[in-house]
Amino acid sequence: MKCKKILLSALVLLGLACTSRGQKINGLSFVASPNKISKKQIIPVQKVSANYVSLMPFGFIRSLDEPLVKFNEKWQWFGETSAGVSQYADLFKSNDIQVMLKPQIWVHGGLYTGKIAMNDEESWKRLESSYRDFITTFAALAEKEGIPVLCIGTELEQFVQNRPEYWTALIVDIRKIYSGKLTYAANWDEFKRVPFWGELDYIGVDAYFPLTPAKKVDKEAFKVAWNSHKEEIKAVREKYQKPVVFTEYGYRSVHHTGREPWDAKRIEGQVDLQAQQLALEALYETFWQEPWFAGGFVWKWFADHENVGGPNNNRFTPQNKPAEITIKNAYQQ
């Protein structure tokens, strides 16, 4: 057991050493599936030259003011549970792909997690206790599996703003059981107000910044639109002297993809494969050469590669679209 622990610690340090030497995190947000994965699901990840994936186990709450986080339930998909994370992580690591563990909350009905807020002090305390159980369970798993990066929360703005002392104490507790690097996935309109960046290792941003309302993407116009957002990101980075990682980034293959990049409501039609491609190119050309920028994770990548995406799909996944080649070209550099 002692030898195993030493080996796992060495794997964590190796992953941290790679990023500290300047190698970008060329990552994919790997969506959990109902089943175990195999080498078949790893090969497409390798083909786009990704060196990281984020694994996303889920906790569930019934409403925005419900304090109980349920996780590792029998009815969850395998990939959303501790057992699934272990199986996925072991397979990725054995194929030289590192992992960021990114436990997330799902609110019933798909309501936005940034609005989770309690109505009274007792409920806040219950939420704090329940979330602590959730995140420390996965922090301990990340330590056991030698996972080099842990994201301690995703888009929880009201929870963070209302309970800053809780989050500061939580980070201390996580560091007692997890020796890797920590980040938090702040929404694009939240990251400037997160009070605890100084306590983490990366400034994490879910980078769905609005860029242009245009129907068709013009790459140069996208790059110009990035300028003001980039300056705001740099200002936060300079304040805390931490590298920035895009914990999520991506665009849909749809008209007006830069208007509200977070928008997932248009289910069908208006397919624009080139828009997704050019929007990604603009992002890579804007950020990937910056020394303070650590890299990021494309949203999103499914295990069943051969049956997702494709030329008639207007969703976020780049799979089986021209954007897949765009990502490969960027990640190979």
Rank of each mutant, 00 (worst) to 15 (best):
M1V: 11
M1G: 10
K5M: 12
L8R: 12
L8V: 14
S9T: 04
L11T: 07
L14A: 14
G15P: 00
L16P: 00
T19I: 15
S20D: 09
S20L: 12
G22H: 12
G22S: 11
F30C: 04
V31T: 15
N35V: 04
K39Y: 12
I42K: 03
P44T: 03
K47M: 13
V53C: 13
F60T: 11
L68A: 08
W75T: 09
W75M: 01
Q76C: 08
W77F: 11
T81A: 05
A83S: 13
V85L: 09
V85C: 08
D90A: 12
S94G: 08
D96W: 06
Q98S: 15
Q98D: 15
V99C: 13
Q104R: 12
V107D: 01
H108S: 11
G109D: 07
G110F: 09
G110P: 08
T113I: 04
G114A: 10
G114T: 02
A117W: 00
M118C: 04
E121K: 13
E122N: 10
R126W: 06
R126H: 10
L127V: 01
S129V: 04
R132F: 09
T137C: 12
F138L: 03
A139L: 11
A140Q: 13
E145G: 03
I147H: 08
P148Q: 01
V149N: 02
C151M: 08
Q158E: 14
Q161R: 13
R163K: 12
T168L: 14
A169L: 08
L170W: 05
V172L: 05
R175H: 12
I177E: 02
S179I: 06
T183L: 00
Y184G: 04
A185V: 10
N187H: 03
W188S: 00
W188E: 00
F191Q: 08
K192F: 06
R193V: 06
P195W: 01
F196L: 03
F196I: 01
F196S: 00
F196H: 00
W197F: 05
D201Q: 06
Y202I: 05
G204L: 12
Y208K: 00
V217R: 05
V217T: 15
K219Q: 15
K219D: 07
F222Y: 15
A225R: 02
W226D: 04
W226G: 02
N227V: 13
E232W: 09
I233V: 15
K234M: 12
A235K: 14
R237H: 15
K239A: 14
K239D: 08
K239R: 15
Y240W: 15
Q241M: 12
K242W: 07
K242P: 02
P243Y: 06
V245R: 00
E248T: 00
E248F: 00
G250Y: 00
Y251A: 12
R252D: 04
S253P: 06
S253C: 14
H255T: 13
G258D: 07
K265A: 09
L273I: 06
Q276F: 05
W288L: 04
E290H: 11
F293Q: 05
A294W: 08
G295D: 10
G295S: 11
G296M: 03
F297V: 05
W301S: 02
W301T: 00
F302S: 11
E306T: 11
P311E: 11
P311L: 10
N314Q: 02
R315E: 09
P318F: 02
P318D: 03
Q319W: 03
P322G: 05
P322W: 07
I327Y: 07
I327G: 02
Q332V: 06
